[in-house]
């Protein structure tokens, strides 16, 4: 296949992925909507949908009492379970398309390379790992309740990426052409995906705290505060060491090779450090009386905000970052004390 064909494939695949994510989102919303049902029916639906598994998520209602199970209720619960499964299948298909798109980006470049040379590729890789982590941890942490949020998030991010950030395939600039970059970025993106999932759990923790433990409406689908807190902690506990590895080990090694300084307080580095410190504070908060629960969740969300700000925002905000993914700037040097003449004076 030619490079152009790969690039076309990549663009088509991301479109297909977007459509399937959108369908998954719709199906999951329908699933939630179907759950507006009398109490006993709901409990049954939930049990059948496989939510009360593994001792992590726990149904607040008791087992469905005999006699309540009217045929309509059984049908409804079946529909909910079906929609839930369908949503996951659609998400898996979308995720596969997403992956094909990333591979296509890498193959379209000459020489072939990892698909993270610019903002577009970064965003697409980042959202891919959000979905991948979600699917990987789906059973273990009973993340089914997250489905509409994750799919909604990914649809939005992909839309932003395709509409505003899209750029053609380009080779990596020299400084980006290093296997340390590969390790650095893979770990940073994995951590970003996991932090995002953890952040969703923390956000839902705060929402649930406001709403209270309801037995009706979509919020009843979200697990209890204790479970949310623990899910958030576990996901963060996974992401934090990965982030440490990415930002404090591979990042500096790469920076040392490319720019001669392993730590230069470049804006991108500063924000990666800020994110790290905030998440360290989050882990502390969970062990500190008076900071558990709500405050810890707030810290997790602040951490997530700094993370995504760094991922996207800082590139538009700061001009001095050497992490110039936004465009493949060559190594233009500025010598200290040199003038900055403007063409207008000519």
């Amino acid at each position: 296949m030619t490079d152009t064909a790969w690039e076309t494939l990549s663009n088509q695949a991301i479109g297909v992925a977007g459509i399937f994510y959108f369908l998954a989102l719709m199906v999951h919303l329908a699933e939630w909507a179907s759950m507006r049902a009398p109490k006993a029916t709901r409990a049954m639906a939930r049990n059948q949908a496989g939510q009360a598994r593994g001792g992590v998520a726990v149904a607040t209602g008791g087992p469905p009492s005999a006699g309540e199970g009217a045929e309509a209720a059984a049908a409804r619960s079946q529909r909910v379970a079906f929609l839930g499964r369908l949503g996951v299948i659609l998400t898996i298909i979308a995720c596969a398309g997403h992956f094909v798109s990333l591979v296509g980006r890498g193959m379209a470049a000459d020489p072939n390379r990892v698909p993270w040379g610019n903002m577009y590729e970064f965003t697409v890789s980042g959202s891919f790992f959000v979905v991948l982590m979600y699917l990987a941890l789906h059973r273990k942490y009973a993340l089914a309740w997250m489905a509409p949020i994750v799919t909604g998030f990914v649809v939005t991010v992909l839309m932003v990426a395709v509409i505003w950030l899209h750029s053609e395939v380009a080779p990596l600039t020299e400084a980006l052409d290093s296997y340390w970059l590969v390790i650095h970025v893979i770990s940073a993106v994995i951590a970003t995906g996991a932090f995002t999932l953890g952040g969703i759990a923390s956000i839902m923790y705060l929402v649930k705290m406001r709403v209270g433990e309801t037995t009706t409406g979509p919020m009843s689908r979200v697990p209890s505060l204790a479970v949310l807190d623990r899910t958030a902690y576990r996901v963060h506990a996974f992401a934090f060491p990965v982030w440490t590895f990415a930002v404090l080990i591979t990042g500096p090694i790469w920076a040392h090779e490319a720019w001669s300084r392993y730590w230069n307080w470049d804006p991108k580095e500063v924000w990666a450090f800020i994110t790290w410190v905030v998440y360290a504070a989050y882990l502390h908060a969970r062990a500190t009386a008076g900071w558990k629960g709500r405050n810890a969740a707030i810290l997790a969300i602040i951490g997530l905000a700094t993370l995504w700000f760094n991922f996207i925002g800082i590139n538009y905000f700061s001009t001095s970052s050497q992490h110039s993914y936004a465009g493949g700037a060559p190594a233009v040097v500025e010598v200290r004390g040199a003038p900055a003449p403007s063409l207008e004076t000519r």
């Binding site: 500063v270 800020i274 905030v278």
Partner: peptide
């Protein structure tokens, strides 16, 4: 102090 450190690092990026 950790939170303060995070906050104090911000101006240097702007």
């Amino acid at each position: 102090l950790l939170l303060l450190l995070a906050l104090a690092a911000v101006p240097g990026s702007v």
